[in-house]
């Protein structure tokens, strides 16, 4: 079972990202579970969502404390205490950031990859919603799930122009990170 924790801010589409991830797993006949750590918070406040992906049914319903991967939708959240807590040894961090991956890795002392997801989303979607771009990068980095599955679940969630643009966005985002860098051994 692979556990993933997504950190972001209210309004950045955290829960949607978590759901899309689990739905993509489902499309590939794996088991997926996703849920938010819902706070009574408003737009802009730090929020979390959890994802589990496995090859057998997932029964546990506790929060993800020891993720193998962290997806950080807003770099500033790295300053918030506890955000990187519990990351498994060898765990990886994908960050929406304008810094370079090397800089980030050094700062964090952990393997990190940066993607300028907000800028990319603004350019293509016209809105600063980084979630789908980050997912595309995550899929490419890990090879865990295919871009096709991501496109498929986007199709279920969105329609019309929003869908078109998101499909464009994930295609571009996928090309910006090294494929298979975080492939399971």
């Amino acid at each position: 079972m692979i556990e993933i924790r997504i950190h972001g801010r209210g309004g950045q589409g955290n829960v949607v990202a978590a759901y899309l991830l689990a739905m993509a797993a489902f499309e590939e006949n794996r088991y997926g579970q996703a849920f938010p750590n819902f706070g009574a918070e408003r737009r802009g406040a730090p929020v979390m969502a959890f994802v589990r992906i496995a090859d057998s049914p997932i029964q546990r319903r506790n929060q993800v404390r020891h993720p193998a991967f962290l997806i950080i939708q807003d770099q500033a959240l790295l300053q918030v205490p506890g955000v990187t807590d519990g990351l498994l040894p060898g765990g990886k961090i994908l960050v929406n950031s304008r810094q370079s991956s090397a800089e980030l890795s050094e700062q964090l002392g952990k393997e990190a990859v940066a993607l300028q997801a907000t800028a990319l989303a603004k350019k293509i979607l016209g809105r600063p919603v980084p979630n789908t771009a980050l997912l595309a990068a995550f899929f490419t980095l890990t090879n865990m799930l295919s871009q096709d599955s991501l496109a498929l679940v986007l199709n279920k969630r969105f329609k019309g122009e929003v869908l078109e643009k998101n499909l464009q966005l994930i295609q571009q985002a996928a090309g910006l990170v090294p494929a298979g860098l975080w492939k399971e051994a």
Binding site: A22, Q33, P36
Partner: peptide, 10 residues
């Protein structure tokens, strides 16, 4: 609440 209502699963 949340644990089931807000959890996505098969």
């Amino acid at each position: 609440g949340f644990t089931l209502t807000h959890t996505l699963e098969g």
